[in-house]
Amino acid sequence: MADDDRINRRGFLSIVTAAIGGLITAGLAIPAVAYIIGPALRSDKTGEWIRLGSTAKVELKTPTLFKATVERQTGWIVNEEELSVYVLTEDGRNYIAMSNVCTHLGCRVRWISEQDQFFCPCHNGIFDKEGKVISGPPPRPLDRFEVRVEDDQVEIFGG
């Protein structure tokens, strides 16, 4: 700086150089951050109606196991996953669909018809036929899916 407040040549060029450098850095840094956190921001909830099978297959008052394969995409890899769902109806009109995944630590529960309850072999979790916890460590009832009946086919909403 000279005696007055006017900016000198060297000072001006320093500022211009720093400004251009800053612009280039920001122009690269902002897309870079978006690029890195992009997949984390993506919503996992891309559900769709999954067809399980005919309503005629659902036994009255007993949870019936249905299996469906769903395509699940993680990054660039598409996997086929098998989904197991217990469907229960008391009157043949209203259906509930429960996941067979134990709410404790994710083992698969199975229906024991003699005892009229779901049993999880990992830590002896026991659920009643509507999925409510009877005993054992599970912290909440079995997860339920939204159900609808379309053309006499049971469908659940999942993904």
Binding site: P31, A32, A34, Y35, G38, P39, G75, W76
Partner: peptide, 14 residues
């Protein structure tokens, strides 16, 4: 590579 170009934000740019 296709995933980078089409699915990732600014992937086409990088």
């Amino acid at each position: 590579v296709q995933y980078i170009s089409t699915q990732i934000p600014a992937g086409w740019l990088i």
